[in-house]
Design a protein around this nucleic acid. Structure first.
Length: 818
DNA sequence: TCAGAATGATTTTTT
DNA sequence: ATCATTCTGA
């Protein structure tokens, strides 16, 4: 059953054959519980080490090796363990060589972790697993092998979003279009969306094509793809699309891979987008007998699908059984992470979603002392941060580690408040998922120098740094070089070299260009002879780039220099500069210092897959969570995804979970009153406790979390703002001709929570707002800031000089005449 | 060509 | 409020 080297002549990375390990005993039919586990152990005494300690479902998932298998792995049910053990099992039982297993993950982190854990299981004997990686890195590997078949050279560059946007902008301008009206950023994300759906320019829907650039969307997309080919470059989407095209157009090559990949494993299947799905289908389809059986195992959790907004299709996982005939489904519902209260709360919440495959997590843990999920209220976000800070300090005093605590927010702007507070308190914190190391300006600049040295055809790199540091080669000069290069169909660096001998440029830029071209020529020569770290230093030094930052007096400059040093240090581990560049384009990871004991602050999205003993979930308010924009843009589906996000948040907690909501939040500089999240009402009472709060402001209303809100609620959405602005514009003619935005809203009706709508249904909200009741100079009272005088009015926004708090801008709904 | 001023957009994030 | 990008005038 194992193909030897001869079968697959064009692969050069086959591992040496391994001695097949004895096959494990068969297990079947356990009915759960410890007894079953014990029975299983007794029945198969010869079971290899790695299988012991798995529960019956896990073991089923590991040992169901043949045929399609979907593992529905709830949060904290040992998903990674199953995946890695399964691979170990395939290897140890001699069913395949490491190189015959295709294992795909979404992030580099997950891939790394999996490699590590397989290493531990199999005793480190397995070198590599050459086909374990992200969809993208495997895509690159395929493309480098077969580049010429899709019109690239195998040393193609991978562009990052920055490059892509600059490139698109050029194309938009080249089309003679207004790049204001048609932002490159927007088009770039459209292309991204298409590529996520597996759509090449010919395939995009007519409507999409018309929606951009005066109907030139399709042409523009095509032009973009052409330009990439010319540049010998790929964007991230291409790393998925090109392999699909490759396989479709070259059945023989596809067949080779069919033979090669005996086993396919996919992690986080609920996050696959259409292109990834197509990619997988191509590899998993086995039309011929000699292609071998279809051994695909997808692991995922439909309840944790939170990336719909970037193209993930939950439907892929929901459809699995239909897609793969005879598929077996194993549910992992036994949770090893959280208390029964946390699971109870999370489970009840997620039940409000439709279209689930249906799982109910349970635990065998029975600790009567476990705390319920706590819900707390605060007046505003400042107080929320203060209270959470206090709670954290208290836990710390009790000897808890900060490393065991996390604050999970919906949107990153919420982090600021916590950071500020923790700085004041002197509390260590760590922000996870901020701007990545390789995305920083100075790193990108440095990389552009390196790229252009290694790849003289990398025009985008050239454009980035040709005038950095300032050399007097501004837009005009760059444009000339660009046009010259385009006209002759040569790379810009080559064009620049030629232009030194012409009088296209004025003497000053010409001299500058001569200098910089000469430098690159020199560095290219050094590439062969000088160690790459040394060369990197030389480049940064000679280009004047280091000097530029040394002369920079701004606060960030020293940090940037430090980052540059760090960049060079990190090159050490690579063979060559080229190897380093490849790594960077795909593995954009920054390292966090793990040693420090610190509270983690991150978004709910980046918390997926992590766990903490104590979790704080601030900001459970309508509009923020669920996020208004998710509701506006995706309606019910958006709401359900938000709910899954809440589910992810809750299930990160092992022991304690504290949810917070506030009644006033400042968004974009304006104070807004907020309503408690509908998700709070969806939590079951028996697992939730409403925490006592120092600052109470009236009792709870109909909803347990509802205070008697003295203010009309306001919304922060662009649409709502616009409506309000229109309103003020139209006050003169008394609403009559308000040029109409129909304000549609999900959730509460005009009478507040009492008039709650059916979830997710779009409902027109009647707008009964009156014109501002105030005029400049009025004396008013604000609950947070106290008394003050109105200094200015713009629409419904009041600028008020408060007696104590100074000048603030607030919405008029917040103040009452004093 | 560059610096300061206006403009605008601010969910979530990977690769 | 805040940040990034783009525009305008020197």
């Amino acid at each position: 059953m194992i193909h030897g080297h001869d079968d697959i002549p064009f692969f050069d990375d086959d591992d040496e054959p391994r001695k097949p390990a004895p096959r494990s005993g068969e297990t079947s039919g356990q009915t759960g519980g410890l007894a079953a586990r014990a029975m299983a152990a007794r029945r198969a005494p010869e079971a290899p080490d790695y299988l012991t300690g798995l529960n019956p479902e896990q073991r089923d998932a590991v040992e169901t090796i043949e045929g399609p298998l979907l593992v529905l792995a709830g949060a904290g049910t040992g998903k990674t363990r199953v995946l890695t053990t399964r691979i170990a099992h395939i290897l140890a039982s001699g069913r395949a060589y490491p190189s015959q297993i295709l294992a795909v993950t979404f992030t580099n982190k997950a891939a790394r972790e999996m490699k590590e854990r397989i290493g531990i299981l199999v005793g480190g004997a397995v070198e590599g697993m050459p086909w374990l990686g992200t969809f993208h890195s495997i895509g690159v590997k395929l493309l480098r092998r077969h580049a010429e078949l899709i019109g690239l050279r195998s040393d193609f560059t991978i562009l990052d979003t920055d490059d892509v946007i600059r490139l698109i902008k050029q194309l938009i301008q080249a089309e003679g279009l207004d790049d204001k009206r048609w932002p490159a950023r927007q088009f770039s994300s459209m292309i991204d969306g298409w590529k996520n759906k597996g759509l090449t320019p010919e395939l995009i829907p007519e409507g999409d094509a018309r929606a951009f650039a005066n109907g030139k969307g399709r042409e523009l997309y095509k032009a973009y793809q052409d330009r990439l080919k010319t540049l010998n470059a790929c964007d991230f989407g291409d790393l998925l699309l090109h392999p699909i095209q490759l396989f479709r157009e070259n059945p023989d090559i596809l067949k080779e891979y069919h033979r090669r990949f005996r086993y396919i494993l996919v992690d986080e299947y609920q996050d696959t987008n259409t292109a990834q799905y197509m990619w997988l289908r191509l590899l998993a389809q086995r039309p011929g007998e000699d292609d071998g059986p279809l051994n695909i195992c997808c692991v995922g959790d439909d309840d944790q699908s939170i990336y719909g907004w970037r193209g993930a299709e939950v439907d892929n996982i929901l459809r699995f059984e239909k897609d793969f005939r005879g598929a077996k489904v194993v549910r992992l519902e036994r949770n090893y992470r959280s208390t029964a209260h946390i699971l109870g709360a999370a489970g009840k919440l997620i039940e409000h979603n439709d279209g689930r495959l249906g799982k109910t997590l349970f635990t065998e843990r029975a600790e009567p002392d476990d705390d319920k999920v706590q819900v707390h209220a605060a007046w505003d976000s400042e107080e929320e941060a203060r209270a959470i800070g206090e709670e954290i300090e208290q836990l710390q005093r009790r000897g808890e580690l900060l490393n065991d605590m996390a604050i999970l927010v919906r949107a990153s702007f919420q982090m600021r408040e916590f950071e500020d507070r923790f700085v004041t308190l002197g509390l260590n914190y760590r922000v996870i998922g901020g701007p990545r190391f390789y995305e920083r300006l100075e790193i990108r600049d440095a990389m552009a120098f390196f790229r252009l040295t290694c790849q003289p055809a990398d025009d985008l790199a050239l454009e980035r740094i040709i005038n950095t540091p300032k050399r007097g080669l501004g837009d005009a000069s760059v444009r000339k070089i660009h046009d010259y290069a385009r006209a002759r169909d040569i790379p810009m660096l080559a064009a620049a070299r030629e232009m030194i001998d012409t009088d296209e440029l004025k003497p000053k830029p010409r001299k500058a260009l001569f200098d910089v071209v000469t430098q690159f020529t020199r560095w290219q020569e050094l590439l062969e002879t000088t160690p790459h770290t040394e060369l990197a230093e030389i480049i940064l030094e000679e280009s004047g780039y280091t000097e530029m930052w040394q002369n920079d007096r701004s606060a960030e400059a020293p940090g940037r220099l430090e980052n540059l040093k760090e960049l060079i240090r990190s090159m050490d581990g690579f063979e060559s500069m080229r190897g380093f560049l490849e790594h960077v384009s795909l593995v954009m990871d920054a390292d966090q210092n793990e040693e420090m004991d610190a509270v983690s602050i991150m978004t709910l999205h980046s918390a997926k897959g992590l766990e903490f003993k104590t979790v704080f979930l601030p900001g459970w308010e309508e509009g923020l969570f669920p996020h208004q924009r998710a509701l506006d843009e995706s309606g019910r589906a958006g709401l359900e995804e938000e709910r899954r996000l809440a589910y992810v948040g809750l299930t990160r907690a092992k022991r304690n979970c504290h949810i917070w909501f506030v009644s006033n939040r400042r968004i974009h500089g304006l104070w807004q009153s907020t309503m408690p999240s509908r998700f709070l009402d969806e939590l079951p009472e028996d697992h939730v406790e409403v925490g006592e709060t120092e600052v109470s402001y009236g009792g709870y209303g109909q909803s347990r979390f509802d205070r008697a809100a003295p203010f009309s609620n306001t919304y922060a959405t662009p649409g709502w703002k616009r409506a309000q602005e229109n309103r003020t514009d139209a006050t003169r003619d008394n609403w009559g001709t308000r040029s109409g935005h129909a304000v549609e809203r999900i959730g509460y009706g005009e009478s507040g929570p009492r008039g709650r709508m059916i979830e997710g249904e779009l409902v027109a909200r009647s707008s009964e707002e009156t014109a501002s009741r105030f005029s400049v100079g009025d004396r008013v009272f604000h609950l947070k800031f106290g008394n003050g005088n109105i200094a200015a009015i713009e629409g419904n926004k009041l600028t008020i000089d408060f007696d104590k708090a100074g000048q603030k801008r607030v919405l008029d709904g917040f103040v009452t005449p004093a």
